Simulated scan of single mutants.
Amino acid sequence: MKNVKSRVLAGTAFTGALALALTACGTDAVQQTTPTSSGNDSEATASGSIAGAGASSQEKAMGGWIATVASVAPDLSVTYEAIGSGGGREQFLAGGVQFAGSDAALKEEEVAAGADRCYGGEVLELPLYISPIAVVYNLPGVSAEHINMSAETIAKVFNGDITKWNDPAIAAENEGVELPDIDVIPVNRSDESGTTENFTEYLAAASNGAWTHEPSGDWPRSGTQSGNGTSGLIDTVASAEGAIGYADASRAGDLGTVALKVGESYVPFSAEAAAKVVDASPRSEHATDKRLVVELDRSTTAEGAYPLVLISYSIACSVYETSEDATNVKAFLNYVASAEGQTVAAQPDVAGSAPISENLRAEVVAAIDSITTK
């Protein structure tokens, strides 16, 4: 695979980076879900272009959304640059893009900066992409469908306390699996990443103290193997036997994936298992009717739930400078939030994400419909 630092997805052509994304996704799957209308007035009047940037986890879903939004807003052009959550938030707050994607909620200081960027309005944080994070590994000689690991074992692997794949701690959770006597090579993201923040949140909450670092979008240990962005991490894991990393599950490809210990069972990732955790989790104490931030229950023992979940937020303004920007952002985000848009991203050959619930959709649409001009 080619190491891609960032990728720009254009909504008006199946060429360049978008063609690469759709080739990976499978254009037939996208075309089969193309709606004739999502019934939103803003889509009919949308024209011109908007730009977004941010989370690489959303890259494949964005490819599907951008490729199909033309069916309801034919005069709207959308681009998205997958530069990572931190970079996307930075560009958005600086006014460089009209919307952003972030795998982590805005920090307190970013919310305050957003009021200035949004002309006195409030920043919108909309949970429109829900996906499990896969713990991926490269062990071609292991035939097991999944390797089982508890959060405690995963924490010890990424903390450097477990250094061999046949370590007794891993073997105890994988009876009957012949594990090789080779080095474990933990791989982390080198850039500031919402995926890293979600992963370290899970380890901090569920590892019984084995993970001693604070949750952060920046990897807390130095001297490790790493990759830039989701593509870079996947490339690094795929190139080294014994490597193990973490990435949005849509990018796992042919790599092996870990089944997480939840209660007394081991649960592999799936959209359905991810949705169970989101539905059961409360809102953040700082959430508003425009900032729909979810406080995920990482230590759940609910049967069939997969607690290593990524919620990637679409970030926008409640107030824009021009009516064109307001109309275009509303049109695109309403399409993404629609049943049709969520179905596009949920296709296994696109992103395999978990569609948002009808109750959450109603809240998201109300927030989008509040967008106006100064």
Score class of each variant (00 low, 15 high):
Ser226Cys: 03
Pro74Ser: 11
Asn328Arg: 04
Val72Cys: 07
Gly64Ala: 14
Pro168Trp: 07
Pro168Leu: 06
Val319Cys: 04
Ala316Phe: 03
Ser38Thr: 15
Asp41Ser: 14
Gly54Asn: 04
Lys60Gln: 15
Leu296Asp: 01
Lys156Glu: 14
Ser318Gln: 02
Ala238Leu: 08
Ser265Glu: 15
Asn138Ser: 08
Thr300Trp: 10
Ala273Glu: 04
Phe158Asp: 05
Glu264Val: 10
Asp167Lys: 10
Ala113Gln: 11
Arg361Glu: 01
Tyr266Arg: 01
Gly141Ile: 08
Lys5Ser: 11
Thr224Gly: 09
Val329Tyr: 01
Ala19Asp: 13
Ser281Trp: 08
Ser102His: 11
Tyr313Glu: 09
Arg298Cys: 03
Glu122Trp: 00
Leu292Trp: 00
Gln31Val: 10
Ala94Met: 12
Ala249Phe: 00
Val135Ser: 11
Ser131Tyr: 13
Ala204His: 06
Ile154Tyr: 05
Gly101Ala: 10
Trp165Tyr: 00
Ala273Thr: 07
Gly64Ser: 13
Pro180Met: 10
Val177Leu: 06
Glu145Arg: 07
Leu203Phe: 02
Ala337Gly: 04
Gly63His: 03
Lys330Ala: 10
Ala104His: 13
Val8Phe: 04
Ser47Phe: 09
Arg7Val: 00
Asn188Thr: 14
Asn188Tyr: 14
Ala275Lys: 10
Thr212Phe: 04
His213Lys: 14
Ser77Pro: 05
Val237Met: 04
Ala331Glu: 02
Ala247His: 05
Lys107Leu: 15
Ser150Thr: 07
Pro140His: 13
Asp28Thr: 13
Ala345Trp: 00
Gly84Lys: 01
Ala345Gly: 06
Gly232Asp: 09
Asn334Arg: 12
Ala354Ile: 09
Ser38Glu: 05
Val294Phe: 04
Trp211Gly: 01
Ala172Arg: 13
Ser357Gly: 11
Val136Phe: 06
Glu192Asp: 13
Ala24Met: 12
Asn174Ser: 02
Gly88Ile: 04
Gly263Tyr: 08
Leu203Cys: 02
Thr343Cys: 01
Gly11Phe: 01
Lys5Val: 09
Ala316Thr: 03
Ile162Glu: 05
Ala24Lys: 14
Ile130Ala: 02
Thr68Leu: 07
His286Val: 11
Ile371His: 00
Lys2Arg: 15
Ala243Glu: 06
Thr327Ala: 14
Asp28Cys: 07
Ser190Arg: 08
Val123Arg: 00
Thr372Lys: 02
Pro74His: 04
Glu192Ser: 15
Val267Pro: 05
Ala104Asn: 09
Tyr306Pro: 07
Pro307His: 05
Asn328Ala: 08
Glu108Cys: 08
Ile368His: 02
Ser131Glu: 15
Lys5Ile: 12
Pro74Leu: 06
Leu255Arg: 13
Thr300Pro: 05
Ala210Asp: 02
Val69Asn: 01
Pro35Lys: 10
Ser314Gly: 07
Gly11Lys: 03
Ser312His: 04
Ala367Lys: 02
Gly141Leu: 10
Thr327His: 01
Leu179Trp: 07
Tyr202Gly: 09
Ala144Asn: 06
Ala10His: 09
Ser357Leu: 09
Arg117Cys: 00
Tyr335Thr: 03
Gln91Lys: 15
